[in-house]
Design a protein around this nucleic acid. Structure first.
Length: 1062
RNA sequence: GGGCCCGUGGCUCAGCCAGGUGGAGCACUCGGCUGAUAACCGAGGGGUCCCGGGUUCAAAUCCCGGCGGGCCCACCA
């Protein structure tokens, strides 16, 4: 133990935060914390969601994510949990590849192949590692205390093996398959994307055309279809109608077109056809099998070769009359629904767009043209052949590649996929067992997402990713899925000397087919990056190779990510958990919001509204802890609107916290307070009410902060700490104890203040440490730390047992006193009476026994804060001793009743001072007055009642009655007021001179002759309060002595004060 | 078309789960202060709690409908 030392007065967070970072590093604080918790029986498996290291600088939203995790981790550590706090990075995939392609100026996969896949993969790896380092630095710099020396990286061989294990598991369960799937395809990246990777949309303008498909048997009749993708027409194989809809044949001048009845009017209108006639109606189901001629069969050879196509098929599901014509053009190779229905009807499936988006050779006339460019040609041809019914344009939201922004193509390609739809029941079951914060995120959002579960296409046609562990025989087609490098070596029959498991090195491994002896080569695909992050819960622990940690830690206790991860990581983890272990890998999810800019927009570099950590630190009112407190106060699951103004306000709060600690530690240090010699437990029975009150407030704070952290409502904890520091501690408790710490002698009431303050302030440091790790460490190290105490505030255990100090009664009493003080100060102000001017008395008029008790007990507080000599409690009814009612006539009500005599009555009312009369009027609703011998009955509507305080008194109501001030200051009180005015000026001058608190001075004063006696009378007071050894009254203003002289105005008087340091 | 979230003073928000006299900060107006803090302190003005209906003794809070803003899914693709 050691005596409390004073903090420096200057609040300089930027400076001390750097010091604290150095200290944490050199003292290895967090290593020590981890070590000390290692043998705790209470494990806490926190799984970090891996960001893509596609840039080395995070934005404030990413920082918020990490700080939120850090605060919760810190709370759990302090609570005695051994927290698994390993951060992670998702190092593979398009996010990395697209950046490298940009850097190297590549436009297509061909460029990569020419450059060399090896070199490309090395660039990706190096880039990822670089960014991992940069990101880690930034997070660490903001006090994120995870274990940055050992992040899990999805690109290591060990990690890849764990991912392979999952694919093997799927194979063993018969869930893995290969086949034709209609997918979103990026023609620039030349790879498939998953549906949930289709997250970016652009408003594009496309053709919106109605095309006539002539019937085979009657070229005068046409099926009318609508499409916004003319480039898919060359691949048309059928037309879909709804069996339950009614269709109409419409004569449009020499030929007929078929349209759903409901859509006739709208379609004719859009086509600008005013003269048309319905010639017949037919139900959709009757149209099945009807044949037509493909309008472009002359231009597209393949269409002439198709058998059993170009007919009407039925679908209830996919055809509606909401839009279009009610007849849907089917290109089975370019739409998932088209594909599905097409398969049911045995229709051919083919796509006429290649990997790069160009029309294939089979597209005939349009071959080699980029698909979007082919639109114009196709439309021109339809027009010239007379098949174009109407041409327009449409603006719609169109999906683009999430990484390179190229518009996507829907096309049928062969892909590897896992049939997770077979596990749908288990998905819903297991999801129901997870605890979500907020609740609705789980039971509505996530559940709703799971309802639309689809098979998982795991293959991607790229380079920098986990290679698909699938080898296929070139001779017989037999396949082998391997779950580890060891297993691969067993199949290869030799030790493999690979650079690592990435492409292109793993591509060189050729196996011998166990079935036919032929050569087996790996399929060229890499795996979906969401598989990489989905296996993190076991792969980061080295499972299945290493089971120890896995057994120790599973299941994951908590994951925390933003609301975009509903369809992302939260889902991917669950998916992998079910495939591999038939259960959810995690118990609890916290879903947070997004960080938006000041206008409420998402932050993007391209928008120029991206705020970086460096900018926060450079801001005048920015610092690490200011930023942490600011973001943590935001409701966790709601979006955060970033605000420079908000930072400034939080800076101010942190400044107040600092000043409270400065105040307390400065005076404790002055008095050599040693906490070891004065323990709170020994003083409990002698504490003053305000001491009990602050201890009770602390007890409540500890309780709410603890439960808020447990419930993951971190914003509540952050707000409660702010309110405690600013409202309870600074604005009230410090204000009350100030006179006690100024006492010269080593008296008990000063000791009590110190003991209470020490207890409160040390415990507050621990409670605030997850949110404000820098500031709490700085204060602890500078003021409280000493021999035999924990080296760091972050080595303290979470406070417990503070609730025993909760005292509802003292809190309730203090609320009453506080309210009375507030009302009284407001009264003073309204009357223009300064607080410095002592007043004779304050009366509390109340009938409430509780309020009465409160005032009796806390009389000293009320009296000192309001600056009155006496505080008295009286019954409410005594209010009549201090104020009277006053009546004002309401002419509008008097006139109709008293007519010509109304004026007389009004005059009587105005001058009425009989309080008994007024009280009767109020009580009964009416009363009689006499004017000139005649009596009149006056009702309450005829008058307006107001109140008037008696001369020398002023009051107002409060919750339990009235507060009244006696404003009749006596000469004695005026003198005291004057003395206090003098004191204030002296103290101000001391401060101007930057004198230490305990420095002694000589004072020389000149005041007007009338006031000299007051100075003489209060000279003792002034000497002691101002630490004044000599106090001299000068005969003239010019005769005032001192190194520093100054003239002051006090009320109507001029005075001169001179100071000299002894 | 379906799902979820949000709507409270000029601005930013708390309160809603668990119904009981409408709150906080900033801004604004006024006052200033006993030496922790003027990056401050005190007091005050400012509210149809989005709109309508219902339940209830009582609704910002619970229920229903509507309007507005945001996000996700589906369709156009």
């Amino acid at each position: 133990m050691v005596k409390v030392r004073s903090l420096e007065q200057r609040f300089e967070p930027k400076k001390y935060e750097e010091e604290v970072l150095k200290f944490w590093d050199s003292a290895k604080v967090y290593d020590k914390v981890r070590e000390s918790l290692k043998n705790s029986k209470r494990k806490y498996y926190f799984l970090d969601g891996p960001p893509y290291p596609s840039s080395s600088i995070p934005h404030v939203g990413t920082l918020w994510n990490k700080i939120l995790k850090d605060a919760i981790i810190r709370f759990h550590r302090a609570s005695g949990y051994s927290v698994h706090d390993q951060p992670g990075y998702d190092c593979h995939g398009l996010p990395i590849e697209v950046q490298i392609e940009r850097k190297l100026g590549f436009k297509s996969k061909k460029d990569i192949e020419e450059f060399g896949v090896e070199k490309f993969v090395e660039e990706c790896k190096s880039f990822a590692l670089q960014n991992v380092e940069g990101l880690s630095r930034s997070f660490k710099d903001f006090g994120v205390s995870m274990d940055w020396d050992k992040p899990y990286l999805t690109m290591t061989d060990e990690y890849i093996e764990s991912a392979w294990w999952l694919v093997k598991k799927a194979e063993e369960k018969g869930l893995l398959d290969y086949g034709l799937k209609v997918v979103h395809w990026c023609p620039r990246c030349e790879t498939t994307l998953a549906d949930y990777e289709v997250t970016e949309y652009r408003d594009l303008e496309d053709p919106s055309i109605y095309v006539k498909f002539p019937l085979k048997d009657n070229p005068k009749k046409h099926l009318l279809i609508w499409t916004t993708t003319p480039w898919t027409l060359p691949a048309n194989v059928a037309v879909m109608v709804n069996p339950d809809l009614e269709y109409s044949w419409v004569d449009v001048g020499g030929e007929e077109v078929l349209v759903a009845t409901e859509r006739v009017e709208a379609v004719m209108k859009e086509a600008g056809i005013e003269s048309y006639r319905v010639t017949g109606k037919v139900m959709g189901r009757e149209l099945e099998g009807l044949r037509y001629v493909h309008p472009l069969e002359e231009e597209v050879d393949v269409q002439r070769k198709l058998k059993d196509a170009h007919r009407v098929v039925l679908s209830k599901e996919y055809v509606s009359a909401a839009e279009g014509t009610g007849l849907v053009h089917m290109a089975t190779g370019h739409g998932e629904e088209d594909y599905k229905v097409g398969v049911q009807y045995g229709l051919p499936v083919f796509s006429l767009v290649d990997d790069k988006g160009f029309m294939e050779r089979e597209a005939g006339k349009y071959a080699g043209i980029y698909h979007r460019d082919a639109n114009k040609l196709i439309v021109d041809d339809l027009r010239s052949k007379g098949f174009l019914f109407h041409e327009g344009r449409i603006k719609h939201r169109y999906p683009v590649c999430w990484r390179c922004k190229t518009p996507l193509v829907l096309r049928a390609t062969r892909q590897w996929y896992i049939r997770v739809t077979q596990l749908k029941e288990r998905f819903l079951e297991e999801a129901g067992n997870v605890d979500w914060v907020p609740k609705w995120a789980g039971y509505s959002r996530f559940r709703n997402w799971l309802e639309g579960l689809r098979d998982w296409i795991i293959s991607r046609q790229r380079y920098w990713g986990t290679p698909a562990p699938i080898w296929v025989c070139g001779s017989c087609g037999h396949r082998v899925v391997v779950g580890s490098k060891d297993e691969l070596e067993r199949f290869a029959g030799r030790k493999l000397e690979l650079r690592d498991l990435h492409r292109p090195w793993v591509d060189q491994v050729v196996l011998k087919c166990p079935k036919c002896g032929g050569e087996m080569r790996r399929v060229p695909d890499v795996l979906d990056v969401w598989l990489d992050s989905g296996v993190a819960f076991y792969a980061s622990l080295g499972y299945p190779k290493n089971e120890e940690k896995f057994r120790e830690l599973m299941p994951v206790d908590l994951i925390i990510e933003g609301h975009d991860q509903i369809a992302g990581w939260f889902f991917s983890l669950l998916r992998c958990g079910l495939i591999a272990f038939d259960r959810s890998p995690y118990l609890r999810v916290l879903m947070h919001g997004f960080a938006l800019d000041e206008q409420g927009r998402e932050m993007h570099k391209s928008l120029g509204n991206y705020v970086e950590p460096r900018q926060v630190l450079e801001y005048e009112y920015g610092s690490r802890d200011v930023f942490r407190w600011f973001v943590l106060k935001n409701t966790v699951w709601e979006d955060l609107r970033f605000s420079w103004r908000g930072l400034e306000e939080t800076y101010s709060d942190l400044n107040i916290l600092w000043n409270v600690y400065y105040f307390a530690t400065m005076y404790m240090s002055l008095d050599g307070f040693d906490p070891a010699l004065h323990r709170l437990e020994d003083y409990l029975d002698r504490l003053k009410p305000e001491d009990r009150w602050i201890l009770s407030r602390l007890g409540k704070l500890a309780s709410t902060v603890t439960s808020s952290f447990k419930e993951l409502n971190v914003h509540k904890a952050a707000r409660d700490i702010r309110n405690f520091v600013v409202e309870d501690l600074s604005h009230w408790y410090v204000r009350l104890v100030r006179p006690r710490v100024w006492l010269e002698e080593d008296v008990e009431e000063k000791k009590l203040a110190y003991v209470t303050l020490y207890h409160v302030l040390l415990n507050l440091l621990v409670l605030a440490s997850p949110i404000l790790p820098f500031t709490t460490e700085k204060i602890y190290r500078d003021a409280f730390y000493g021999e035999g105490l924990p080296e760091s505030i972050h080595m303290y255990s979470w406070p417990s047992g503070l609730e025993r100090f909760i005292d509802e009664k003292v809190e309730s009493e203090m609320s009453v006193a506080r309210e009375i003080v507030e009302v009284a100060l407001s009264l003073r102000m309204r009357k223009g009476v300064k607080i410095r001017q002592p007043l004779p008395a304050l009366y509390v008029l109340t009938d409430s026994p509780d309020a009465k008790n409160a005032v009796e007990k806390l009389r000293h507080i009320i009296s000192s804060q309001v600056n009155v000599k006496e505080v008295k409690v009286l019954e409410s009814s005594r209010v009549r001793d201090y104020r009277r009612y006053k009546l004002t006539p309401v002419y509008r009500a008097l006139g109709p009743v008293f007519k010509s005599e109304a004026g007389l009555v009004a005059e009587k009312i105005s001058s009425m001072s009989d309080q008994a009369f007024i009280e009767e009027l109020l009580r009964n609703g009416s009363a009689e007055v006499e004017v000139n011998g005649k009596r009149y009955r006056v009702t309450s509507e005829m008058v307006q009642v107001s109140e008037e305080w008696l001369e020398g008194f002023f009051g107002d109501s409060f919750s339990h009655g009235f507060v009244v001030l006696d404003l009749r200051a006596s000469e004695r009180e005026l003198a005291e007021g004057f003395a206090r005015d003098l004191l204030r000026r002296i103290q101000y001058m001391r401060k101007e001179l930057s004198l230490p608190v305990n420095a002694e001075i000589d004072v020389s004063i000149w005041v007007p002759a009338d006031m000299r006696k007051y100075v003489e009378e209060y000279s003792g007071f002034l000497k002691s309060e101002a630490r004044c050894r000599n106090l001299a009254l000068a005969e003239s203003a010019e005769g005032v002595a001192g190194d520093y002289r100054r003239e002051w105005e006090i009320g109507d008087f001029k005075v001169v004060i001179g100071l000299r340091r002894v």
